[in-house]
Structures are given as C-alpha cells and as structure tokens.
Design a protein around this nucleic acid. Structure first.
Lengths: 210, 210
DNA sequence: AATAACATACCCAGAAGTGGGTAGGCCGCT
DNA sequence: AGCGGCCTACCCACTTCTGGGTATGTTATT
C-alpha cells in the first residue's frame, strides 16, 4: 500500500464535540482522510456503504445501537473493513467483547492525538493496536475467568443473595431448604474469597450479574 | 462589554483528544479566544494566573485534583473568574456539587459545538448556563433530598457497611462503640426503608456514594 | 431557657448467619 | 463399577444482627 494514498477513515461518535474535534485533528495529518462522520452506528453504516472507508473509528457508548454490536453489522456489510474502537472505559467486558466481535484495535480516549493516528495506521496496515492500559486488562480478564468457576445453582443463589434476600427467602424462591442455601453461600464465599454479604453484592454488581 | 473583544477561554481536560478538538473548534469562532489549555487542574491554575481568562471550561473527571475541587481553587486565586463545567455525566451529585462550589454553568459533552459556544458566551456575560438535561437533574435531586435526609454520621456508616464491614469493624474504624453503629444502622434502615445489608449496598452503589 | 436534632451508648430476647463438619442421591465420564 | 462434581440436607457451637426500647451529652435553633 503506497504512502501516497491517504487512509480513508469514518468516524462514529455520539458526542458532536469528540466527532468534530477528531475530524479537525485528523485532517491536519496528511496520511488520514476523514471520509465521513456520524453520530449513530446505523447512520455510520450507511455512509460506510457509499464512502468505502478503510478504517472505522467508533465509540462504544452510543444510543440505539452500541459500538460493540455495531462491529458485527459493519463486518457483515463490509467484510474487508477494519474497526477500531475508541472508548472512555477500560472495562474488561468491553475490551474483550470488542475483540471477540472482531475489532482490530481498542484505544482509550485519554491517549494523545499522535497515538490515535498511529493506531489508525496500524489497523489500516492490517495489524492490531491496543493502547497501553488495554492489553493489561485483557490479561487480567483471563485470570478472572479461571478464578471463578461458579456452578449454575451457585450463581442463582448469589444473585438472589445480592438482591437482598435472606437464606430463608432464597430457599422459598428456589424451593429448597434453607440449610442448602447456607451450603451454597458457604461455597460461594470460599470460592470467591469474600467474607461478607456486602462483598458478594458488590461482586454481583461489578460483574454485571444483575 | 464590546463584541470586538473576544472572550478569553482556558480549557482544562485530561483527554488530549477533547482538549485539542475543543481548541480547534472554538478557534473557528471569532468570539472566542483560547488563551491556554491544560490536562490537569493545577497546571490550568498556573496558566490562568498568567493568562487571566474570562472563562474556564473544565472537565470534572481528572486525576489528582478533580474538576469540582478545582472550582474552589480557581475562585480563591481568581475571584472574578467564571467556571463552566463540562462533563460526561449527568449525575445529580456532580451537578449540584458543582453549583454549590460556584460553577456558573454545567454542560454535557454530548451537546453540539454551537451550544458550547453559547454556554461560554452566556457565562462570560455573567449569566449561568445549564444544558438541557442538567436542569432537570437539579430538580430531581431536590426531590431526592426530601426523601433521604441522612446525617453525616449515617452516611459514613452506610458507606462502610456497604463496603462489607461488620458493625464491629465500623466501630473500630470510626472509633465509636459497636452499639452506636447498631443504632445508626437501625436508623438507616428505617429512613431508607431497606431491611437487608445487601439492599443497603445496592443503595450505596446506585446512588454513587462509593 | 426550652426544644429539636444529632451522636453517643446500653439492655434484651429472638432471629439469622458463620464455619466447621458429614452425607446421601444423581449424573456423566472412564 | 468406580470416581468426581453437583445439589441436596443436616448438626453444632458460636457470633452477629435485629428490632424493640431507654438514656445522656452536645450543639444549634427558637
């Protein structure tokens, strides 16, 4: 791929501020040509079909269709496209789900403009790009998975426990004895290394098991 | 104030992307002159002392000194300054605390560039400016207040309780007797109408008291 | 000076949770 | 048939929480 042809980029972000700012910034770099901008994933897809960008730089948090679901839509309609995610959040879920869905890179919004350009170039070349904090998070997430082999029943009990039900309540809900619920609770605390009910509730909320 | 003199604006945001983007955008408007940019509150304050901006446009979520605490610092050092907050979040706490601390406006990052300029102009004229969603939230928050008149001590106990500490732990942490913690806990449950520890934890997390 | 709100502290009896076991029945894999 | 994982269930001694009180000192308000 010759350096003479600029990389065609489509920007999708529901913050007009970021969208306009990014466009203004990227256009000062000769290597990059912004062929379109959109505030929503669906609108972005329509533009992409016409403008045939090399790279889509897309936010995750958007109304209607979020950026992660949009990855699949783009890859279906435009198989050769490279999607680069841009997000405020270094959450494990977001990052690993993005990668699973086919994103070629993931950068945080607190990186420098230079790094964004570098990421666009890398992705356009067919490489992947993850900003510094992101790859660490991917490692952590794998460690997490190994550490938490909860059974189905345990997950149910955990969820009810966190929603504020007592052992007796849970027993009634699940149609088992309170003693059994106690056993599950014990196993949960042992497996998760958490001693208190409050801790379990935090765990549930933080891991989105609600 | 004559229209000939542009409004001197200082931008503070720890996202280089937003910072550079905002600067590029605002400079296309003749009414506004960006006299400086900073990625941290303290650095911004130093620039402000030299550049004497009319308006400071500042993000809330920043490392070291957050935007809300920075409002006070700016007003101490530069009494005439007008601070306009720019935030991703429409959280009640953020908005009302900002106003209490002396911010003259609060706009969300999903507004248009035009609205940002309008906000800067309004604040520079000595008016206040709150973007659409924000004033609603201020109303809500007042409704909330009536329903939840927790005392300072109760809030502390609630926070520790939700973090997974037992009555005894909390007593030790606060240097009071466990019996007193019990009393606070009773009052909390009564006031909030919540019977279980898990429920209290949810309350804390949902209301962002972490 | 009186009142109200707050933070502190204790009593008590009953309910619930804790942490250590053990144990049987069921299912899938070898 | 044997083994392991899962779900079920119980025992026991101990600790903690619960929900009902009462009470005292301080501080702010009236």
């Amino acid at each position: 791929m010759s350096r003479q042809q600029p990389i065609k980029v489509l920007l999708i972000d529901n913050h007009p501020l970021v969208l306009d700012g990014l466009k203004a910034l990227l256009e000062t770099y000769g290597q990059v040509e912004v062929v379109g901008t959109a505030g929503l994933a669906r609108a972005g897809l329509e533009i992409a079909l016409r403008a045939q960008p090399d790279v889509v730089l897309m936010d995750i948090n958007m109304p209607q269709v979020n950026g992660i679901d949009a990855i699949e839509l783009f890859k279906q309609q435009l198989p050769g496209i490279r999607v680069l995610m841009l997000s405020m959040h270094d959450s494990r879920e977001y990052i690993s789900t993005s990668v699973l869905k086919g994103a070629r890179g993931y950068i945080l919004k607190d990186v420098s403009t230079e790094e964004i350009v570098a990421a666009i170039e890398a992705v356009a070349r067919g490489e992947t790009y993850f900003s510094s904090g992101v790859s660490d998070v991917l490692m952590e997430r794998n460690a997490d998975d190994n550490a938490v082999p909860l059974t189905l029943r345990e997950q149910e009990v955990l969820r009810l426990l966190a929603s504020g039900q007592s052992n007796r309540d849970i027993a009634k809900t699940l149609g088992i004895s309170a003693a059994t619920v106690e056993t599950h609770r014990k196993n949960l605390k042992r497996k998760l290394g958490i001693a208190t009910t409050a801790g379990l509730t935090r765990y549930v909320i933080e891991h989105g098991l609600t």
